[in-house]
Design a protein around this nucleic acid. Structure first.
Lengths: 355, 355
DNA sequence: CGCTGTTGGTAACGCGCGTTACTTGTTGAA
DNA sequence: TTCAACAAGTAACGCGCGTTACCAACAGCG
């Protein structure tokens, strides 16, 4: 492999070229090479030897050894992220956002999978396996990312390096976290419906105890209050967070009232349920948004963008949360104090065609 | 941080505990500690000092430094994967499969993002950035993973370490790859429809030139041939690989024939198009699978499992391909010869309710 | 002329660990 | 009693690099 084909344009990389080789080839000391490669300000190297060294680097195809560099400099430029997202990729854009940001900062993001059970539960032992592995790699900071917004307990060893939680928060309230502004999202959704003239709005709710449900519903109430309205408890129905759950909940709401009392809009607290609601509405010969407007939450692209009509929904800012997580971590590792224990990220409204 | 609270049950980890500290604490040489920790067979250490060392490790909360170990032993236990999947997470289960397998093998998978343009195109320069970074980390092997089955060019530097392609293949035909058995998938889909009694089958095709379309269609033809049937070219319509594309294509097929000549089943070459086909069918007052059976491809969970009725489809074996990629890479790095240039992985049929 | 400051480098140490070569103490057989 | 064989460990080197301390040559200045 990597045979030296004569006449090749690309520099032939030899395996195992070290700084020493570069130094010899350039006729200087290894120290000089190190100085040039790390662009030291105060080191005095003449322009001529500098170019000679750079040429040697090119000719030999030298590639720095990140591990050795980390060992000597005592900084790895690595962050670690522990996440169940690899297992349940709903929120994979968190990883994308974090990756991109880390890449921009010239840092490596080590991704370690955690079983969902591990991340939530108090079961010590297995729980720390991923964290432990990351610390063995001498990551300079840790991120924990969850697929859905909730409280978690992180392993104790996370205290050893700066740590930031993404899309979840520390149940013990000690670590900084990045979470979606559920309330703002709920507010903006209902505001949109109000603006379209709807005053009788049905809500298809999630399990009422989870942070997402609590926040989004609270936001909905706020928006109604501003318009001088109240949320009719009868119009709020809960169901399983699935298409079937949404279908059933929508059926209950739609069939409960005579035509003139029927809600003219449905706020579905996630897109999967909206998907089911679509079916219930269409089955009854009603049109979207003509007879019933529908607004979702989550912006699960595969659903929202492909439903017919396309679903207007509130987006969970996964990518932004990932990026912000890395930025916060960078600030922390740079020694800056924690800004806030819980940073809220906007959930923007995505207008499509269902309102 | 990590303050020593007296009376704490958990061992208090001190930052920067090294083997030397462990050795001192146990009253032995650092070499002895190294021998014990790496479980050397031929090293002779008495059972008593062995336990003494292990105790010291516990008490001090020693954690090995993976980087230093890699430097000294000249093996990193790291694989790198370059992928656009982080950007377009459709095939994220490839990463999951690879991760899990690597984790089982006690190896770390470094994930580096590649822009889609980079991975395909011949644009040198930026193209290699991810690969270069990974090689700087001294990964022992490289994986390249694509979101959809196609030919790619990998950067030249990939030659320096064993390399395996996942869900794509080397356009130059030099590197081993893991790809889905599209033809087998097409065959099994049509076999299922034939078995259910359908003989007049419409096909909603993708862009006819991509490997997925070619293979799946070929498989469909094979299955029909076994039953003594031929694929009616008129029944094959292409469209954009979206729900809208599927909707339009399905409309064309459904409206073209009088009722008795209408196909009784649709083979949609991906699930998104099946989603659109559902709408076209329902709009015409037809039922699934009563009037028209539908079978998809890809098993995009968010769609297939939530459509009503749930979509029977052929799964792309992302997770398996990821795992097999790592296994193949492990074999290669262990010095075994390449088994085949292109390993096909089965696409299993997932029975739901649309046939 | 001696002195100081600057330019352009180099020698040498250590990061944390794997590994080889070597030492010491003990046992058993000749 | 002597010597080989083994058990139980240690000293020392080097992996590839960052970094500090040092050195030589030369210019400028009084």
């Amino acid at each position: 492999m990597a045979k030296s084909t004569p006449g090749e344009a690309v520099p032939v990389r030899q395996r195992g070229v070290t700084m020493k080789d570069v130094a010899k080839h350039a006729g200087v000391s290894r120290t000089a090479v190190s100085f040039v490669l790390s662009n030291r300000e105060n080191a005095s190297i003449s322009e001529e030897t500098r170019t000679r060294i750079n040429r040697a680097v090119q000719e030999l195809g030298y590639r720095p050894n990140a591990g050795a560099r980390a060992l000597a400099s005592r900084r790895s430029d690595w962050y670690g992220i522990v996440t169940e997202i690899v297992t349940a990729p709903f929120a994979v854009n968190i990883i994308k956002g974090a990756q991109d940001q880390a890449w921009l900062d010239r840092r490596f993001l080590l991704i370690a999978p955690s079983d969902q059970a591990d991340a939530v539960g108090p079961n010590q032992g297995l729980e720390d396996a991923a964290t432990e592995k990351l610390l063995e790699q001498r990551v300079e900071g840790l991120l924990y990312a969850a697929t859905f917004h909730r409280g978690v307990h992180v392993p104790a060893s996370a205290n050893e390096v700066p740590t930031v939680l993404i899309n979840c928060f520390d149940a013990d309230g000690k670590l900084p976290s990045i979470v979606p502004d559920e309330r703002g999202g709920g507010r903006i959704a209902v505001e949109r419906l109000l603006q379209a003239g709807h005053t009788r709005i049905g809500v298809i709710n999630l399990d009422p105890v989870i942070p997402a449900a609590v926040g989004r519903l609270e936001g909905a109430r706020e928006a109604l209050a501003v318009a001088g309205l109240e949320l009719d408890p009868e119009l709020v129905v809960s169901g399983y967070a699935t298409a079937d759950g949404g279908y059933e909940a929508a059926c209950r709401i739609l069939d409960r009232y005579p035509r003139q009392d029927r809600p003219t809009a449905l706020f579905c607290l996630n897109d999967r349920m909206a998907m089911g609601a679509y079916d219930a509405i269409k089955e009854r010969g009603l049109t979207i948004p003509g007879d019933i407007a529908v607004i979702g939450f989550d912006n699960q692209e595969l659903i929202a963008a492909y439903l017919r009509p396309k679903l207007t929904t509130v987006a969970l800012p996964f990518e932004k949360m990932g990026a912000l997580g890395v930025q916060t971590l960078a600030a922390l590792t740079a020694g800056q104090p924690i800004i806030a224990d819980q940073q809220l990220v906007d959930c923007p409204l995505l207008e499509r065609s269902s309102v």
